[in-house]
Simulated scan of single mutants.
Amino acid sequence: MARSFTIEETGFPDAPGMMLATVKALKEMGGSASIAELDEKVVEIEGVSEEEQSFEMVNNPGTPRLNYYLAWARTYLKRGSALENSSRGVWALTPIGSSIETYEQTQKIYDQVVEEEKERARLKRLAKSGKANSDTIALQLELPSDTSPNSADEAEADWEDKLLSVLRKMDPSAFERLAQRLLRESGFTKVEVRGKVGDGGIDGVGVLRVNLVSFQVYFQCKRYTGGVSAGEIRDFRGAMQGRADKGLFITTGHYTAQANEEATRDGATAIDLIDGRRLCELLKSNSLGVSTEMVESVTIDPSWFESV
């Protein structure tokens, strides 16, 4: 079956093709999916290679080009009323989306959104020049304004990108000690950093107690910017074979869809994966080098004072 799109190291992919692949993936998944589930399904049905998944945005290292442009594909489809998304990050087909079967249909939505943006830009120029009348300004306000993918997550992605930049500059041994501290804060005991040459890439080991049962967990941590492949997961599993109950792979990068599948392959020792975004969340929740500030909002009720 012919691919709907391709991802290259530079240049823009076929947006309508990615939109069509997104619709196809959602249909195969029953009409709704989380972003991670949806991206993995697109990889599966389109046969996207691990090399394609490893390509990153030039101006935003650490962000896979595939996932970035799939986010834009969802945005275009939402603007065309073909998709909707909930506050929990679940995307679903609308009746319009369910009716999409061809490339021409997604091309039409794409062209519609592009024209809306051109019109918005023209109206903004008029408003800036002082030549816009009230009708022009009203039309500008009526045009859809959600022009960025996952706009609700932009603020969160900003601090995560800054933190990942710091983590990737750490000395390898310091990063291993950070992983050790994080595991201890998360309830592990007897956490040791090994990192010996010839130890098959195993960086450390710890014990996790769950109720009455304890598990020995080997971990590996890598300061990557790209994607961790299925081969690297297999190599890690081979190194820990017969030595641990579970494995934990921590990276500042991301995992390919094939790596995710390999980590949970039937009949093999399970390996849990923590990517860069998840690592940031864990550091924040454990207050390890990350602090949060709650802003107080004060509301005054004048009518309350009148009744005193």
Rank of each mutant, 00 (worst) to 15 (best):
R168F: 00
E46Q: 14
V191G: 05
A15S: 10
P172E: 06
Y103N: 07
A15T: 15
Q140M: 15
T94K: 01
T225V: 11
A121I: 08
P144S: 09
R3S: 11
L288A: 02
L164Q: 09
I274R: 03
I271W: 02
E185A: 15
G276I: 07
S87A: 13
V217T: 08
V308C: 05
N85Y: 09
A179Y: 02
P16N: 13
S297M: 11
R209S: 09
R265V: 02
G195N: 05
L26G: 01
L212M: 11
V295K: 14
G253R: 08
T256C: 01
S229L: 09
L178Y: 02
E104R: 13
S291W: 09
E262F: 03
D146G: 08
G227L: 07
E56C: 10
G17H: 06
T147D: 09
E44S: 08
R209F: 00
D146E: 14
E154V: 13
I202K: 05
I96S: 06
T225R: 13
K27N: 03
G62L: 06
P95C: 01
K78Y: 03
E232W: 06
D146H: 10
A268N: 10
R184N: 13
L182M: 10
G201V: 08
D158L: 13
V298Q: 10
P144D: 05
A92I: 01
E40H: 10
K222V: 10
A263W: 00
E232C: 04
R125K: 15
G17F: 03
I137L: 14
L38D: 08
S4W: 08
N133V: 11
R65Y: 03
F219G: 10
L143A: 04
L282A: 03
L273F: 00
D135W: 04
G247E: 03
R177P: 00
